[in-house]
């Protein structure tokens, strides 16, 4: 399976990068942009073929390495592996 892990700063943690992106969008003339938050997206190819087992693996990886739970939260999506060809 493929796991897609999205890591975002927790609500309440200052996100200066998101603020800077929002300001730059405003400078480019995009009106009506509210709060902007920046995060990370990590794609994992997993040998595991069971979706729920793959999700559990990816969540464990996120807790132990991919996210720092002091400042970040994460969510995991599971998708079929795309076989090239």
């Amino acid at each position: 399976m493929k796991a897609i892990v999205t890591v975002m700063l927790k609500t309440g943690v200052l996100d200066p990068q998101g603020k800077a992106i929002g300001q730059a969008l405003h400078n480019l003339g995009f009106a009506g942009v509210g709060e902007v938050r920046a995060g990370k997206l990590i794609e994992l190819e997993l040998a595991e073929t069971d979706p729920e087992a793959a999700r559990a693996q990816a969540e464990e990886m996120a807790r132990r390495l991919l996210a720092n739970l002091v400042i970040e939260s994460f969510r995991v999506e599971i998708a079929p592996l795309e076989i090239p060809g």
């Binding site: 200052l14 200066p16 990068q17 800077a20 720092n68 002091v70 400042i71």
Partner: peptide, 17 residues
């Protein structure tokens, strides 16, 4: 040390970027 959990908290990007 914070990432390893030997000290609490975390170091974020400088507020000024």
């Amino acid at each position: 040390l914070t990432e390893a959990g030997l000290l609490p908290g975390a170091l974020l990007r400088n507020a000024s970027l």
